[in-house]
């Protein structure tokens, strides 16, 4: 029940942040879906005892791959789906707890929470990197440049053979045989 409530929060939060980033209206629902999938993967692997950082990595990887697939299907930049989609993965509560512990001068707890938050944030970054790296080669038509300008003129053979060191005293115009 509480998970369902959270999933609803993820959907609403991601879609609303997508509006804040001015994502085109036709992509709003898909962006929310990408966010929901990433978060669901993170929660699911967390239930199996995978550490939070690895969960964040897998979640971000899911968001990134979903975004790239949607980008190709809907002919839009992948950013449109990925940027709102990673917001639910952010370890906000941990970072905040670290800050509170720091203010209470409980440095041991602060270090513990901050490390976990930082590693989870790094996991998101690495997940995004992996997703982008995996999909960069896929189905992306490269721009074909067809130059209209003529190729550089070929040097006449004779002139090339002339490239010998000329004596300094010789008149340079006197090259014709």
């Amino acid at each position: 029940m509480s998970l369902l409530l959270k999933a609803l929060g993820v959907l609403v939060g991601t879609a609303a942040s997508a509006v804040l980033f001015n994502v085109p209206r036709s992509a709003l629902l898909w962006a929310a879906l990408a966010g929901l999938m990433g978060w669901a993967v993170q929660v699911r692997v967390g239930l199996n005892g995978v550490p939070p950082a690895a969960g964040a990595l897998l979640g971000a990887l899911t968001v990134s791959l979903t975004g790239e697939a949607l980008a190709r299907a809907r002919r839009m930049p992948a950013l449109v789906f990925v940027v709102p989609g990673i917001l639910p993965l952010v370890p906000g509560t941990r970072a905040f707890q670290a800050m509170l512990a720091l203010l209470r001068q409980d440095h041991g707890l602060a270090a513990l929470e901050a490390t976990q938050a930082l590693v989870a944030a790094g996991g998101i970054a690495v997940g995004l990197l992996m997703g982008t790296a995996l999909t960069r080669a896929w189905g992306r038509p490269t721009a074909q440049v067809l130059p209209l300008s003529s190729p550089p003129p070929e040097l006449p053979r004779k002139a090339r053979h002339r490239a010998v060191i000329l004596p300094l005293w010789k008149d340079r115009n006197d090259l014709s045989d």
Partner: peptide, 29 residues
């Protein structure tokens, strides 16, 4: 930009308040 114009301005206000309450549910509210 998206922040100008009254209609889109109203939409932005609505979006940020919805986003905040959605994330409040997410972090255990």
């Amino acid at each position: 930009g998206p922040n100008l114009g009254t209609r889109s301005r109203r939409r932005m206000f609505l979006a940020q308040s919805l986003a905040t309450s959605g994330f409040a549910l997410l972090v255990g509210g």
